[in-house]
Computed example of a mutant assay.
Amino acid sequence: MLISPCNSVHTIGMRYPIDIVYLNNKNKVLKIQRNLQPWRSSACRGATQVLELAAGNTDNKNINQGDTLSWQD
């Protein structure tokens, strides 16, 4: 799920961990928070968007800090 505008997330009330990818306005990966457990929070200064993925997907999709992401319709 892509959330914009956004630079922080929480997992309060969630029952499973997630991966968080923080992006700037040009879709450049600023920070990755892998396996964020329930009842935690995370933030990234300079981020304008957050991509939430199932835990492990940043590794499975080989997403790394400094990458620029793009989407196709």
Rank of each mutant, 00 (worst) to 15 (best):
M1R: 01
M1K: 08
L2M: 11
I3G: 00
I3F: 02
S4R: 04
S4W: 00
S4Q: 06
P5W: 02
P5S: 02
C6T: 02
N7C: 04
N7R: 00
S8D: 04
S8A: 14
S8L: 07
S8P: 01
S8M: 14
V9N: 06
V9K: 08
H10D: 04
H10P: 08
H10Y: 06
H10G: 08
H10V: 01
T11E: 09
T11C: 12
T11K: 10
T11V: 12
I12D: 07
M14N: 06
M14V: 13
M14W: 15
M14S: 13
Y16H: 14
Y16Q: 08
Y16S: 11
Y16A: 10
P17L: 13
I18K: 02
D19T: 04
D19M: 09
I20D: 00
V21L: 09
Y22P: 00
N24T: 10
N24P: 11
N24M: 11
N25D: 15
N25P: 03
N25W: 06
K26C: 07
K26F: 05
K26T: 11
K28W: 06
K28C: 07
V29E: 12
V29T: 12
V29K: 06
L30Y: 03
K31I: 00
K31R: 13
I32G: 05
Q33P: 01
R34E: 15
N35T: 10
N35P: 03
L36K: 05
L36D: 06
Q37H: 10
Q37E: 15
P38F: 06
P38V: 03
P38K: 10
W39F: 15
W39H: 11
R40E: 04
R40Y: 07
R40A: 01
S41D: 07
S42A: 14
S42I: 08
A43S: 15
A43K: 12
A43Q: 12
A43V: 11
C44W: 05
C44L: 07
C44M: 01
C44H: 00
R45V: 11
R45N: 10
G46Y: 04
G46W: 03
G46K: 04
G46P: 04
A47K: 05
A47D: 10
T48L: 03
T48M: 07
Q49F: 04
V50K: 09
V50Q: 07
L51M: 09
L51H: 09
E52P: 09
L53C: 11
L53S: 13
A54V: 11
A54L: 08
A55T: 11
A55Q: 13
N57T: 02
T58K: 04
T58S: 14
T58I: 06
D59E: 15
D59A: 15
N60D: 10
N60H: 10
K61W: 15
K61C: 11
K61I: 09
N62I: 06
N62M: 03
I63S: 02
N64D: 08
N64K: 15
N64W: 03
G66T: 04
G66V: 08
G66S: 04
D67M: 10
T68A: 12
T68E: 13
L69M: 10
L69E: 01
L69T: 02
S70L: 06
W71S: 08
W71C: 01
Q72I: 08
